[in-house]
Design a protein around this nucleic acid. Structure first.
Lengths: 127, 127
DNA sequence: CCGTATCCCCTTTGATACTG
DNA sequence: CAGTATCAAAGGGGATACGG
């Protein structure tokens, strides 16, 4: 039910160093996490598949990102002991709950990125 | 109306280096931007006020964050030529549209951070 | 009061090479 | 195929000092 004190969590007074906002940003604020979650939101995928789909990600960062998500309980890793080995990644139930908020943000991005770019251009032109 | 091709923007195929998801993350993915937006969502604030409310932010980063938001057209900066000078920051209309998606994310954070912490603990205990 | 300018660290990321 | 290990590079971010 989550009926705890939600009063000042977003804009309230004590913007503690460990408020939920900061903790969530520490999770998904990096360069790759939301991209991985976004792709897995469309269906399970293998390591190499993710790597191909996410332009520019290095092997190391993909591994690191996936481990982080697995540790958070948002992604499940399944090893199929074939030859060669096949590893599938999938969102957990918890992971799927992230898709809504993420899509909301992305929708915002799609709708406003034009205005933002225009504002930047104007700002840079001005001075 | 935004009826352009939204097909593969979130989970589609070409996860280009400049897809909206990445560009939005480049905007708000840093450590301070959403915190500043969150506070300004509750009402205008002065520089020193923001600095007091956001625990741990340095003068440099607050300035830098505010400049970025101003450049993006999300925050408006007003200088009152008094002595000493008083500077007020406020969200623009565009800036206010960010509040919804941001609150959604924060709501997610509030609801799931417990589970995430538990998952982390379990993961670390396992090995 | 509200910044800007420097210096410096340290974390994040990428490149590369190597294993089961 | 799916990683791990290591090293080097880049840049975000803090501390401090100074200017309008």
């Amino acid at each position: 039910m989550v009926t705890t004190q939600v009063e000042s969590l977003f804009g309230g007074d004590p913007y503690h160093a460990d408020c939920p906002t900061r903790r969530i940003l520490d999770r998904i604020g990096d360069r790759w996490t939301v991209l991985v979650v976004g792709i897995l939101g469309n269906g399970d995928a293998r390591f190499s598949e993710l790597r191909r789909r996410i332009e520019g990600i290095s092997q190391k960062m993909l591994t690191q990102t996936l481990r982080g998500l697995e540790r958070d309980g948002l992604v499940r890793r399944t090893v199929h002991p074939e030859v060669p080995v096949r590893v599938e990644y999938a969102l957990t139930d918890a992971g799927r709950t992230l898709l809504g908020p993420l899509r909301a943000l992305q929708q915002w991005s799609i709708e406003h990125l034009g205005d933002v770019s225009a504002a930047q251009a104007a700002y840079d032109r001005a001075d």
